[in-house]
Design a protein around this nucleic acid. Structure first.
Lengths: 340, 340
DNA sequence: ATGATAATGGAAAAGCTTTACCATAGGGCG
DNA sequence: CGCCCTATGGTAAAGCTTTTCCATTATCAT
């Protein structure tokens, strides 16, 4: 690979001049000289070495994303949002999945630090423990977090509590009283918030919380199926189920069908996230819509602000909306749908 | 951030000694000295700067992935496979989406070259044009391609032609003669191969190709719905449809239902890929299973071989298998299922 | 014609690591 | 007791860029 000296030699100028041409320095360079340099660059197919540049400038134009699992559509969509903004701004993105290895987060933080990443975006998983915090402290000005508020970094938040509340209230509104909940795994704040919204709302409607009606899933359709079956086979079966994400809702619906129940007549089901496939399901899934792409985009925008040192609001909250479809109610006329 | 000199000073040794301790050089270092160095490293929380290291060693332990769109579950799964292997081997991964910008590929190749990536994995999208090829030529020994064979790089292949053939043959076997096809967009070799398999197989079964029965989709459920509607509304409607991926199959099934058709009685539908949700759909989707995770893992393994200079087989072909479910046939007993 | 100023080009340092090569000191052996 | 070898540690170069100061040249004006 040619370096700047090769170019300088070929164009019969100094490396300083080459750099000035490449970086459009305000320091003036004779037009003819510029052309000579550009010609040499073209012939050699020269590109400045980003490693050397990064080393000197303390800027790598690279940020890291740390998420549990890219094959989860929820995170895939967030990552896409991040990338769209990052790419626009000239930043490259490295991706790191933390699941299947508990020590993942710390390892990746160190890795990113070694590689001089300009910033980090976290989503999901668990941030805690003294070690993680102390490591993060050093990077404070370069971290944005999605979906958690208990750590004092800039954050993009989702109203999960409110979303779950709306889902549950919707079920009460259409007459349900025994409402099951298929949540996420321990340690996920998203899962916790969604559960909190559920608890709050049943209490508000004068129903006592029954631990039997609450299960902890693993975000997968399979766990939705398994836990849905448990919920529906036990005595005092719920007439409605809220699942903490759409794939688990699909699993629960499958479980209901396997038991001969008809959705929504015998069992109403509400999901969470509104992944692209949810409206194509049969029945189309009522779900709490999360603007995943926007979440990602907003977090990257924040990080950009952080890097450039601009002032900005440290917390951005995204509202959730309930998409009412046919897994909770028989098809409605448009006019009626509005009230939810 | 502390550097190696800070450590050396603190431990009262030279930087060479520090490096020896850090990199476990065979050059021996007094045990007491080692401990002093390690102590200093711990106190300063020192980590070697990967930029400087990469610059010197010409090795960055980073590879790039260039794909059309991470929010497509097909690619998300491939990326996960790549990452699992890469992570194991200590490599970080940068991700680049090419859709929505035709010049994407070239831009990312240059970017990766600037950043001294140790290798690149391509999947999907279109590689052609003189410029792209000439750029790639310089990188020849560091590129692995997934799903295309017309360029002379090491490749991980999928038997898309055979898969489509099996899907179509299955439909013939259960009595269908008018079989529609919802393919992918122009320029996608995957889409092309799947179409070829379709064409071959209808010909083998003595049916003449009818352009009317073939549509070009965009991989999305929406395009499946739209094109499914077109297919089913026209005269001489097909009794079966093969979709080039699962989301489009879901769309087509929704279209059928909207028209009052029952799947599989009035219309049989086969998808492609077998994404996790496919078996949870209603009816569970018959589909050509692609081992996406393995595809990604295999490509990264190849790239690792390429990097280490080991000999390896330059082309790895993955077979596809037909998952027969209830979108083509009423539930079968296990024994019967075998024959497909 | 000469001095001053503007226009342009160059040299060198900093950023951080690894490693080949060199230097030193101490111990063992003759 | 002196020499040599071995064990250990140090020095310096290479890898490539950007940018700050300097230096040079040429042109213009007096």
């Amino acid at each position: 690979m040619p370096n700047i000296l090769d170019v300088a030699l070929k164009a019969h100028v100094s490396i300083a001049t080459v750099s000035r041409v490449v970086n459009k320095s305000h320091h003036k360079v004779n037009l003819a000289t510029q052309e000579r340099v550009r010609e040499a660059i073209r012939e050699l197919d020269y590109r400045p070495n980003a490693l050397a540049k990064g080393l000197l400038m303390k800027k790598t134009m690279t940020i890291g994303i740390i998420i549990p699992d890219i094959s989860n559509p929820y995170y895939a969509e967030i990552v896409r949002g991040i990338q769209d903004v990052a790419d626009q701004a000239g930043y490259a993105v490295t991706l790191h999945n933390t699941d299947k290895k508990p020590e993942g987060i710390i390892r990746y933080i160190y890795l990113l630090r070694e590689k001089s990443a300009d910033g980090i975006i976290f989503s999901g998983g668990i941030i805690n423990g003294q070690e993680t915090l102390s490591i993060l402290k050093e990077l404070r000005e370069r971290v944005v977090v999605i979906g958690r508020h208990e750590v004092d970094f800039p954050a993009v938040m989702v109203d999960n509590i409110g979303g779950a509340a709306r889902a549950v209230q919707h079920l009460f509104d259409i007459g349900h009283r025994r409402i099951g909940f298929i949540g996420g795994p321990d340690g996920s704040t998203t899962a916790l918030d969604r559960l909190t919204g559920y608890k709050n709302t049943i209490a508000q409607n004068g129903v006592t919380f029954s631990p039997r009606l609450v299960k902890k899933g693993m975000w997968t359709p399979k766990s939705g199926y398994l836990l849905g079956t448990e919920l529906l086979k036990g005595k005092g079966r719920p007439t409605a189920i809220v699942a903490a994400n759409d794939p688990m809702a699909f699993g629960a619906i499958k479980a209901a069908k396997a038991l001969g129940l008809v959705v929504p007549k015998d069992l109403a089901v509400v999901g969470f996230d509104d992944i692209p496939l949810s409206s194509y399901f049969d029945p189309p899934l009522t779900t709490v819509k999360i603007p995943m792409h926007d979440l990602g985009a907003a977090s990257m925008t924040m990080l950009l602000n952080l890097i450039s040192g601009e002032k900005f609001k440290k917390v951005k909250l995204f509202k959730t909306t309930l998409q009412v479809r046919e897994s909770t109610v028989e098809p409605l006329k448009k006019a009626d749908r509005k009230k939810y």
